[in-house]
Amino acid sequence: MLTDAQDLKPGFPDPVPDAQWAFRGILHAMSYPGRITQAGLALTPPRSLDQAAAAIGLSLFDFDTPLWFDRPAVLAEATNFFQFHCGSPSVATPGEARFAIVSDAAQLITLEVFDRGTDEAPDRSATLIIQVPEITEQAEGVTLSGPGIKEPLSLCIDGLSTDFWRQRRALQSLFPRGIDIVFTAGSRFIGLPRTTLVET
């Protein structure tokens, strides 16, 4: 719940163009999976929230998007932030969330708990925003291919549990059902839609 007005960080300084700009960033990231995109807006989000995660949330969340937070205590300020600026309800069950904010991916419970949609309505599925310490382009990382990727590209995403990529690969066979992921690191972020094939 809202504790003190002074604790509340401001949202977009200029909501209409800022939301559009942030959306174009996420549109680009989802269209070209794995390409590191910059959230080019100077926001002052709560400490527990990445610049990129704040911009994406402010542009996409509202009262129609129940949110789930993996670490409610750590993310209390973020919860208030989105509740105030977007009117988004937060839910205790990850399966009910349209969006999930994950701040500690190493401890993330299985990806299976999120809504993957149905074969007839695969769009009714969750999008995860996973905050990680760093995303770098390097050959030792995972290799991505699929729609939006011209030549396979390799990335290193820090802070994930050892089991994460196995779980993500297991989801691939469920297509069109699935979950879509955005990884954020500070103001940098990448999209990982369900169509992206991952090799470790």
Binding site: P15, F61, G178
Partner: peptide, 26 residues
Amino acid sequence: NFAYLDEQTKRMIRRALLKAITIPGY
């Protein structure tokens, strides 16, 4: 509003667009 639509409608459409990209052709 800018581009006629209200922001709530734009957000709804933007979310739909993102899902459309993640499920090509659906």
